[in-house]
Simulated assay, not measured.
Amino acid sequence: MLEVSEKLNTSLFQSHLKRSNLAYSSSTPTKNTSTPTKRANFVLLDHFSMSSFSIALDTLVTLNLVHDHPIYECKTYGLKDKKALSDISIEIATDGTIEDIELAKDSILIICGGFRSSLKPEPSLNKKIVKAAQANATIMGLWNGSFYIADSKIKLGDSISIHQDNKAIMRERFPALHLSTSSFTEDSGLFTCCGPNTALDMMLHFIKSSYGTDCSQAVAEVIGSDRTNNADTKSTNRFLRSETHTPDCIKEAIQLMENNIEDPLSIDELTKLVGISRRQIERLFKINVGVTPARYYMEYRLTRARQLIQQSNLSIFEISVACGFVSSAHFSRTYHRFFGQPPTDTRRTFQDT
């Protein structure tokens, strides 16, 4: 079985695999919970799109998981009552009405519309949107939520996105406003999207611009991993699909690693199978993956082990064997260094959530 000769950087993944493990790895036993949370305020219009709302909410909840501390406290509000009816006739009990919304510079105001949401002036909602703009809060419109943003008369950017079926009324009511053909738009703290299929893209863009690429890609790994490129269905590794500049020999090496977990190949065996020298594979891995092949192999095996710990009833010993470790003791020590906790704690935490 393969062992890593290089000294491991304890507790932190160094390759792109850190995105898959951010929600589960920490250099400290518990995440930092002392940092104050920000408020994400969801205004649910009657007949709001449940799918758009769920996607936007899910991205923020997942962001809390992958970050080193919870960032957003998510609250829901109805227009006049502490309830809202979704587009699939499920009534949601909200945390309050729009009069209860608290706004600050670091908060978010999200107007959640839907296909059958009635587009008519709502003076109380307009006032809340104006207050959000005055506080320099981030404002978002889902589906036709951007109608109310435009109706509030706050200063808008160059364009705004809205569902295709609502463009006629937007042109009639706001003739000077440019309606974007893009799936979502962002301009100076204002984010708008056309519907559920674009809500995820908009939210990931917001997370990337606010908290960096690693957080955005970590969230995408959790809730967007089912979006594949149909032109490359043979590749199961999202990194290999997205990094088109990666040399074929490195892609082949990574796939060989993924196909040989229980009995890992040595680096010399890998170089023979892909037809390049050890020096070449070390150099190309550093350039394209950011780590040595031995390091990547270890990180991939640990990622597979974490998945088995959470999703199977296999014992820790059986998982250590399945992931190519010489002993369960060695596996537990290595796992602890990377994830900040022993594998038994990961299983216990996952089962308790």
Rank of each mutant, 00 (worst) to 15 (best):
S5D: 11
L8S: 08
N9M: 12
Q14D: 09
H16L: 07
K18E: 09
R19D: 11
L22C: 10
L22N: 06
P29F: 08
T30S: 06
T30A: 05
N32I: 10
T33V: 12
T35Q: 12
P36F: 05
T37M: 14
K38T: 09
N41S: 11
N41I: 08
F42R: 02
L44N: 00
L45M: 14
D46F: 00
S51K: 09
S51R: 05
S54P: 01
I55Q: 00
I55L: 02
A56M: 10
L57T: 06
V61R: 15
V61I: 15
T62L: 09
L65P: 01
V66N: 13
I71P: 12
Y72A: 03
L79E: 00
L79R: 00
K83I: 00
I90S: 00
G96T: 06
D100K: 09
E102V: 07
L103Q: 12
L103G: 11
S107L: 07
I108Y: 05
C112R: 00
G113H: 01
F115V: 12
R116S: 08
L119Q: 14
P123V: 13
P123Y: 11
S124R: 09
N126F: 14
N126M: 13
I129T: 13
V130D: 06
V130G: 07
A133M: 03
G145R: 01
K153W: 15
K155F: 03
L156G: 10
S159C: 10
I162C: 13
Q164R: 05
D165L: 04
N166L: 10
K167T: 15
K167W: 13
R171P: 10
R173F: 07
P175Q: 09
A176S: 13
L177P: 03
L177Y: 09
S180R: 13
T181Q: 08
F184C: 09
E186R: 14
D187M: 02
S188P: 04
F191V: 11
F191G: 04
M202Q: 02
M203C: 15
L204D: 00
G212I: 08
G212S: 06
T213Q: 13
C215P: 05
S216D: 02
I223Y: 08
I223M: 08
A231E: 04
R238V: 04
S242H: 10
E243K: 15
E243P: 01
H245Q: 15
H245G: 13
D248K: 08
C249Q: 02
C249R: 03
I250P: 03
A253W: 00
A253Y: 01
L256V: 03
N259D: 07
N259K: 09
N259Y: 03
P264E: 06
L273I: 07
V274C: 02
Q280R: 05
I281W: 05
L284T: 08
L284G: 01
L284H: 06
N288P: 03
A294Q: 11
Y297K: 04
R301T: 10
T303R: 05
R306L: 04
F317A: 14
E318C: 14
C323L: 04
V326M: 06
S327F: 11
S328Y: 15
H330L: 14
F331M: 08
R333T: 15
H336V: 01
G340N: 13
Q341H: 15
Q341K: 15
P343Y: 02
T353K: 09
